[in-house]
Each structure stands twice: as C-alpha cells, then as structure tokens.
Design a protein around this nucleic acid. Structure first.
Length: 706
RNA sequence: GGCGAGGUAGCUCAGUUGGUUAGAGCAUCGGAUUCAUAACCCGAAGGUCGGGAGUUCAAAUCUCCUCCUCGCUACCA
C-alpha cells in the first residue's frame, strides 16, 4: 500500500553481517539486495532516506573463530569487516554508512541505551549458577564447554550443541564436562545477570504486532511472532560473562559484557549517529552518503530514530525475525524514546543446487568468490537473486538458472532490445534521436503501456514484492521487443523514413525509461545505459513519459549491456563448488578417534557372556523414540523382544529376516516401558555410524558365538 | 514432542477477500522473421494444485485427518 503523506523520512537497515567469516549469496538475497532495491527506489522518488548497516563484531563466536584461525579476535573482525564491506559495495549495495560495532561510538551508544533502561528500573537482576573455569579464571560460554552428549554418547559434544547427533544441549546436560580453555572440569559458580522482562511487554506486543500489523506483515513473519508470543515470553538475559564485547556500564559488573543481541541492533542506531557525525564534521571514515542530506547537525540522527513521522524498515533473513520483531522492538519501546519498525520483511532461505547453503560445510557461493570470478557482472548476480528471492518460501539458486537468466533474459530480452534500438538509430539517423510523426494505434498502445509501468513497478516495491517488480522491469523490455516486431522499421526503411523515425523515437524513449527504472535493480547497467543514451539523471516520477529524449539529441557510444555466459563457465563453477565441499569435508574430518583399549580380561570373564545368533521375525519402530527399534527375535531358545538403538541406521522393514548377533544372558532392562531381553551387537565407527554384526553365512538361530 | 512457514506444469515460482477454461518465465514442439548478441516475435502442448475426508451452488483457496520439506523451540551470533 502506498505510504501516507505524513511519512517524512525513512530509516532502512540491513541485518548486520556477523564478522566471523565471509558471507554468501544467500545472505545477499535475504537482507541486502531487497533492501538496496527498496532504498534506491525511495531515492529516485526523492524521499529522505538513510540506509545503514555495519559489521556485528561481538559474541562468543568471534573469539571462537580466532582460536580456530590461531589469531586474535581483533584480527578476525578487522579481516572480515573489510572483506564483507568491500564485497557489499562492489555488488552495488548503496549504504549511506557501513559502521562497525567495535567502534567507540557504538560502545557508548549501547551503554547509554543499557543505562537508560537500567535507570528506569526496566531491567531485572538474577543470580544463577554457571560453569566457571578456575584455572583460566573465567566463566565459560557454552561453546567453551565440551563433554559427553547425553543423547548419543559423543565424547566431544559442545555445551550448546552436539555436532554428531545434532541435538540442542545446555551445558548442564553434558556428562563429564570440561573446559576447552584449560581442559580442567569446570565448577558451578553463582553469577549475576541483567534481564529484559519480555513478558511485561506481551500486551503491547499483541496490540502492536498481532492487531495492528495483521495485514501488512508477511505471513511467515507474523506467524513466527504469534508463535513466540503465544508460547509465553520469558525474561531474557541481556548480559554475559565474557571478556569480548561491550562492558556492562555498572560498578558491580566486572567481567561482564552486553549480550551480543542487545548491542547488535543498536548498531543500526550507532551507524546512523556515525553518519551524521561525519556529515557534520566532513570526515568520511564509515559513511558514503548516497544522497544530499544538506546541512546537518550532529544530533540529526535522532530524527531518524525518534520522530514519529519516520518509517523504520528492517531487512533480515528468517533466522533474525525474533530479534527484530520482539526483542529489539521491546528495547526500543521500553526506552520510550525510540520508534519501532513499521515492517520487517524477512526472507526465507536460499538453497544452492539442491542443498542448504553453509559456509562451514563449504556448500556456498561466497560474495568474494563470485566477485573474483565475475568481476564485471555484479548486476547479473543481483538479477539472478532478485528473480528468485525466497520471499514466501525457501528458494533455490542453481548455476544453470543463473546462466539462463543471463542469456535468455538479460542478454536476449533487455540487452538485445536496447541494442536493436541503438543500432537502427545509428544506421538510419546518424545516432541522433529522430523526431516523432503521427502516432498510429500501435504506437498509442505502447505509449500507454510505458506510461503504466512506473506505477506498477512502484506498487510491487512498496509491497516488498521485489521478485514481481523485477519481472515487471524486464517486461518493459519485452514490450519494446514486441513493438519492434510489430512495426518492423527495418522494412519501412526503404519506403517511409518518417515512420521509421517515429518508431525509433519511441523505441529509444522506452530504452530511456528502462535506464531509469532499472536503477534500483541493476544500478551498474542503468549507469551504462544512461551513458549510451547520454541521458541525464532523472527521478522516478519523470518516467512513464515518452519525452525523456528530445528529437535531435545525440546519443552516446553504444556497446553491449550484457554478454552471454558459456556452458563451460557454468560447468567449471559447478565443479568448483563440488571441489570446495570435498576439501572442506576432508579438512574438517577429525582424525578418526579409535577408542582406547579397555583393561585386560580373562577367558573366564569372556565366557560368562552367552553370545548367540538369532533371526529377526518382526520389527517395529518404538513410538516416541527416534533411536529404538523393537525387534522380535527367534533366538533358537525362545522368541524374545530386544530393543536396539539402531533406528537411525536401519529401518524396521529392512531388519525383518536379518540374522543378528546378540547377548542372550544379559539382565533384562526396561526402556520406554518395554522390557528388552538382550543386546544386539554392532560395530560403531568414529562418526557414530552403526553396522550390524553378522556371521558370514546362514547359521541356525541359537548358534553360539565363541 | 510443541509451534511457525511451505508442498501448484519437466525446472524455478505467481495465484489478493472461495467464483468462468488454475497463470508466468525457462525448458520442449510448431510457425513467422532477419534490425539485433543464432537473439527477438506468434502459437501449441504440458497440472485429478502432496494424499484423504468434509463444508458450499462453487474449494488450489475454508475445516478436519495424514504424509513430506524447511525454520524456531529462548543465555543460541
């Protein structure tokens, strides 16, 4: 829906990239490209807009990455801040400012924010027991505690997650926990933290999101929020025991820092502050203002965050919904000074060639990799992502699709149309815009269509439907091709040059409209096309007209807007992707842990065990268990039930009829309410994969194993 | 386990509040054309809208059940 006139300015944010590694094209599709299209569009409408972003540089994962790369946290953030920032700019993301959360200004802003809440009594204090490493003299973040996974027995599970079975853990669940800092077992020690009582804001959240944004927020975002609110909100700790981050600005908070999700979104505010500071003192360290802000004062950032007539929009991926829709808005609302977002048009995820994108698994196209391989094609990537944004559900990027979008749409429709118009003008009118004669019904029709395009594209962008907007943009070029096919000026050139002039004039006017209207989507191409047409910078409201180029106007030098991408290029990218994945897999393969030898036993010990071969007569999955199969075994002696934790490795169906080796005289044991009369033997490798132990040939059930 | 979002043509995706024959692009096939990067333009074919039941004059759309995918499930960035 179109914005009401009382909106005086816009604050647009893209999720702060976390500076612990490179960022891939999925991030780009999620939070950066849509935001950039939106902002460029607003600028063309001459709206007052700031577009802010920056590096998110705190949290436990940064020092963690430093350990991995054998360097310091500072070096990690310095490295990735520059890498990510440069990539985003090279892909045309037009931030007015790209700040970083390690900057003093941000530390100040965050501490002020925290204190403002604290001083109003809006934060609660709570003391709880946390693991503490006595040797290293530090509280341990979840990631720094390893121990045995209570679910799968992996001896190297992390405090937050077991990477073998994938279950989410809390440090207290680990068996035999030990600190990764010193290797010693940690002790529980009381620690005080400050909490944001989210539950106090539930009525407000219900009113604000569930009632007033029921119609204009995306269903995925709305649903996610509703789910959180309905589940019941709890106080959330806003501080951590950690030495990397922003110090908690209180006297009794030694060794404590602000929770990274408390300070990161404040980074948007700090970035805006930095922009206005730099605009007012003329130094440009983090800012690169994309529009003229006129004469400003240092405090003018406040208008963009505190004035009711400012519209705030956060572009994020779906993993960030809760922070941008619940926690940060509660912080903003609680402060009683700040406005809350008007919308959070979160995108879903983009998959790659049939699998989830993941930098750590090597299954990704990192921004810098793309830029290295296609340095002159930022717009092709923008287009390929835009036409397939995960707006309503997860979407899929394939190199083949990338190629076909380039070859069939950018080259064949857009580039080709412009080229046709320009080449014909060169051939017949010495590269000058010919005058228009009398318009025929075909001409009138195309003029009418051109007139409607800007409004249609604008409506799509305003509704955050960027994929649709992009399709409309290319449709304008299609309209141009159709017009040329219908009027066939190359045939008329032999008989009626006046008519040819009229047609080419209109074809050039369409090209000029394209030059302006493509700017939000394909900024580099737009610039190139403007120079080919010698077209001055125009605003969005000047488009839709067929008088952008006056008759007699001398055109610039024509060149091709896009070039075809050959099959070989695509094939080598796919190959590269697979090679990278294999390399990462190989590098991350921990040396296979072979279990240490157990203490020696005598033959008597061994002979106590009665090991037999049995045959599975029936098998079924245990309800409510993801690991147990209930097997009915013909043991030769009897028919018995044995429960076996192999459901993740064998299905019930395939077990039926199989020979199994089992311990026949093991004391029965009840699991999930069913008694198991024995134990099935299997071999387990270092990855936790199980393989059943079977005799090499068929033997009678009940045969003993010696 | 609970919750959220999805499952629509070979592929990638649209389908606003239930309403004619369910759409687009690509791929396929046919036609036309040569100004243009063998590009463009016209047309055809292609779907029991995950499966089942129900409400209704009418269901891709609403209700219930069921299967599959992704995400969230809170000191996790």
């Amino acid at each position: 829906m179109p914005d009401s006139p009382e909106i005086k300015r816009y604050t647009v944010t893209s999720a702060l990239p976390y500076a612990n590694g490179p960022k891939h094209i999925g991030h780009l599709a999620g939070a950066y490209i849509p935001a950039d299209v939106y902002v460029r569009f607003l600028r063309l409408l001459k709206k007052n807009v700031v577009f802010v972003c920056g590096s998110d540089e705190h949290g436990t994962a940064i020092p963690n990455q430093a350990l991995k790369e054998n360097t310091t946290a500072q070096q990690i953030i310095d490295k990735y801040h520059v890498l990510i920032r440069d990539c985003l700019y090279k892909l045309g993301i037009s931030f007015d400012v790209y700040h970083r959360t390690s900057e003093t200004l941000h530390h100040q802003t965050s501490q002020e924010f925290f204190l403002a809440l604290f001083n109003k009594g809006l934060l609660t204090e709570e003391t709880s027991e946390q693991y503490f490493d006595q040797e290293a003299n530090a509280f341990l973040a979840d990631r720094y505690i390893v121990g045995t996974c209570p679910r799968c027995g992996n001896p190297n599970a992390y405090g937050d997650q077991c990477e073998r079975c994938g279950s989410t853990l809390s440090p207290r669940e680990l068996i035999n926990p030990r600190s990764t800092l010193s290797g010693s077992p940690p002790v529980l020690r009381p620690t005080k933290h400050w909490f944001l009582p989210l539950q106090d804001y539930e009525p407000w959240l219900r009113e604000w999101i569930l009632k007033s944004h029921a119609d204009d927020w995306k269903t995925n975002v709305y649903g996610q929020c509703k789910s959180w609110i309905d589940a019941g909100l709890l106080p959330r700790a806003m501080t951590r025991d950690l030495d990397w981050g922003i110090k908690v600005p209180l006297p009794d908070a030694e060794g404590k820092v602000l929770y990274v999700w408390f300070d990161a979104p404040i980074g948007y505010i700090s970035a805006t502050r930095a922009l206005f500071q730099e605009l007012s003192d003329g130094k440009k360290k983090y800012s690169s203002p994309q529009s003229d802000f006129g004469k400003v004062k240092v405090d003018d950032w406040k208008k963009y965050w505190q004035d009711k007539d400012t519209k705030l929009v956060h572009f994020v991926g779906k993993d960030n919904i809760v922070f941008h829709c619940i926690i940060f808005p509660v912080m903003l609302h609680a402060s009683q000074q700040f406005i809350v977002p008007d919308n959070v048009p979160a995108n879903e995820f983009m998959n790659l060639e049939g699998d989830k994108m993941s930098t750590s698994r090597g299954w990704s196209i990192e921004m810098h990799e793309y830029i290295e391989d296609f340095p002159d094609k930022p717009d092709v990537l923008r287009y390929a992502l835009l036409t397939n944004l995960p707006e309503t559900k997860d979407s899929e990027f394939t190199w083949k699709d990338f190629q076909s979008k380039n070859n069939n749409e950018l080259v064949a429709i857009f580039g080709n149309f412009v080229n046709r118009a320009l080449v014909l003008t060169q051939n017949y009118f010495e590269n000058k815009v010919p005058p228009r004669g009398v318009l025929t019904p075909v001409d009138e029709k195309v003029v009418k269509e051109v007139k409607e395009f800007p409004g249609r594209i604008a409506a799509s962008i305003e509704a955050y439907r960027f994929r649709e907007a992009t399709a409309l943009m290319i449709d304008l070029a299609r309209t141009g091709n159709k017009y040329l096919a219908e009027t066939e000026p190359w045939k008329l050139a032999k008989t009626d040059m006046i008519r040819v002039g009229t047609i080419l004039n209109l074809a050039l006017q369409i090209s000029a409209n394209l030059a302006v209207l493509t700017e939000p989507f394909l900024p580099f191409t737009s610039r190139k096309l403007k120079s080919m047409l010698a077209l001055p910078d125009l605003g969005w409201n000047e488009t839709g007209s067929v008088d952008l180029l006056p008759a007699g106007h001398a055109l610039g030098h024509a060149s091709l807007l896009f070039e075809k991408i050959e099959d070989s290029v695509i094939e080598s990218q796919i190959k590269k992707l697979n090679i990278k994945k294999m390399e990462v897999e190989r590098a991350s393969q921990p040396p296979k842990a072979v279990k240490p030898l157990k203490p020696e036993v005598t033959i008597d010990d061994f002979s106590k065990l009665d090991i037999r071969i049995g045959k599975v007569i029936a098998a079924e999955k245990m309800e409510k268990s993801n690991k147990l199969l209930k097997l009915t075994i013909n043991s030769g002696l009897d028919t018995r039930i044995i429960l076996s934790g192999i459901a993740q490795h064998y299905t019930a169906e395939e077990m039926v009829g199989k020979q199994v080796t089992f311990i026949a005289n093991l004391a029965p044991r009840k699991m999930m309410g069913v008694e198991s009369q024995g134990m099935i033997l299997s071999a387990e490798d270092g990855d936790g994969k199980l393989k059943l132990l079977q005799p090499l040939g068929d033997v009678e059930p009940g045969s003993a194993v010696n």
